[in-house]
Write a protein that binds this DNA or RNA. Structure first.
Lengths: 181, 181
DNA sequence: ACTAACATGTAAGTAGTTACATGATTGG
DNA sequence: CCAATCATGTAACTACTTACATGTTAGT
């Protein structure tokens, strides 16, 4: 049970999903490829944290729908009280920014403009997910109450959105200095 | 030559340093343990990107001071123009936040207060580094000119500081909702 | 015709962590 | 006396990525 496996349990605690679905949903919060996730799900099933049902499909490939067990729920609750490891942020861009003084300003400008675009696109994406969340809520603002799963999703999406916006602003700030010279 | 090795080259492009020093300086921007860095430095030296001088010390253990070669500088410049990989952010706290609805509010509050404190401490630390940078500059504001190494350090520290502050604010925002209930 | 989405899996490799190993000096 | 800082290294392990492997359907 590594950290990723708790992330997967957290998704399955809301509703049963396939490995394929889990790979998509976990991505913004804990990047991982399907080649890491599929074997891990097998191990978690073997250890009794999950069960699965094989769903035969004619139009699309067959799939395994994983469901969390009560043992899985207990393990998830236990984990929340354990010490939390430090965040790990690795961004090649930051290392390039550290050496940007070695290169010519045009190249530096191109680099930061690219990144600004990337983060702006992410911001749009997270914004759209937040809009969807609020639409599903139908004006009842249930997502503002801790204790419902939507609350957790709401605060995470908000964090992802502000992080993206801040990254865009930082790029713009650096660009303004690069263009002044 | 993995991404970390370019980070190390970037530090050595400013001034020669020991592996021990590099381990400290790289940490905020690319977490890595000495057990990863020492063998990597050996490989980079073997490949001609670095040289080292063995400094014998009587009070402290001997050390190796690494210096970047012209081949190293060229490689560093070449890397900046290459495609940049996506940032990787993995924070166990985010996964816990996603499952926080399963636990009681007091535990949730404790979790977020701890994190708020951690990020606040980081903010103080980065603030102090920025203050030091500006003191060393002696009011000449050279760090605002792209093309000097201090500019790169300035923009990175500013990013690290605002990221920490934003994380503190997010924790406080979540806490305000958790306390309302 | 080709590209993307759906769907799961394994094999081989790289990157990163934890633990082991050593040892002097300084400060509380 | 104990912990921290300085200083470098290896061994064993875990985590993660890239590449290989297969196959259908829907849209451009």
């Amino acid at each position: 049970m590594n950290i990723l496996s708790y992330g997967l349990l957290g998704l399955l605690a809301r509703e049963p999903r396939s490995g394929y679905d889990l790979t998509q949903y976990i991505k913004p919060f804990w990047p991982a490829k399907h080649s890491q996730i599929y074997p891990l799900l097998g191990k978690m099933e073997h250890d009794g944290y999950l069960t699965f049902d094989l769903i035969r499909q004619s139009d699309k490939p067959d799939k395994k729908i994983y469901t969390i067990t009560s043992k899985g729920i207990e393990e998830l609750k236990r984990w929340i009280d354990e010490p939390t490891s430090d965040p790990v942020n690795r961004d090649e861009m930051m290392l390039k920014a550290y050496s940007i003084w070695l290169t010519d300003p045009e190249k530096a400008i191109r680099l930061f403009e690219e990144r600004e675009k990337m983060h702006a696109e992410r911001a749009v994406y997270y914004e759209s997910l937040l809009v969807k969340l609020k639409e599903d809520d139908q004006g009842e603002q249930r997502y503002l109450s801790p204790g419902v799963p939507t609350f957790s999703r709401y605060i995470l999406l908000t964090k992802a959105l502000t992080d993206s916006k801040n990254a865009v602003e930082w790029c713009q700030w650096v660009l303004s200095m690069l263009k002044k010279g």
